[in-house]
Amino acid sequence: MSTGQYNYSYIFKYIIIGDMGVGKSCLLHQFTEKKFMADCPHTIGVEFGTRIIEVAGQKIKLQIWDTAGQERFRAVTRSYYRGAAGALMVYDITRRSTYNHLSSWLTDTRTLTNPSTVIFLIGNKCDLEAQRDVTYEEAKQFADENGLMFVEASAKTGQNVEEAFLETARKIYQSIQDGRLDLNAAESGVQHKPSQPGRNTLNNDQQQNRYNKDNCAC
């Protein structure tokens, strides 16, 4: 067996959040497959995608969780924030309501992740300039006030999509280098080298098994 079965040195966990229909799934798809999905169904659950990228010569595996945006699932999706190293918070530049809800998404992120989690704000659908409902400037100001990174992007044309995902990774990597992100801390969202999946461990039955055997009159 070869030892080099893993060709990357870190795993970063990302979550993508934001109102329904803002283009979260399309952004993930564009990033992992480099394709645009014109009619993408609502996400009923949490989709999962992965891609290996390179930052400063290091291979990093991104594990990306794309959450359902529908309000009725909000209580459940909150449990996926834990342990995220990066959070991509998305709104739709053509729908102001999705922008107005950002503060509530931000509150969730801040309370449910740890302080070193990198939060990246994405104004999606920037290809639809004619229908723009939120200006770049006001969003930029919101980002600055809250210490978020920010770009406008389009999952359709692919504009700025790579940048958003990679910039987030760079920022996380930097935190590791600076020692601001404690790798050993629980919930850092970063793993130093992947580990093997848990094999079968001693469980209930095996004990029950012993119990039965021992209890037998023979």
């Binding site: 342990g83 790798l183 050993n184 801390a185 629980a186 919930e187 850092s188 793993q191 130093h192 992947p194 580990s195 093997q196 999946p197 848990g198 461990t201």
Partner: peptide, 12 residues
Amino acid sequence: DKYKDLDKIVMD
């Protein structure tokens, strides 16, 4: 404590 989450994959 730190091992609790580092290897998330391992349930135990």
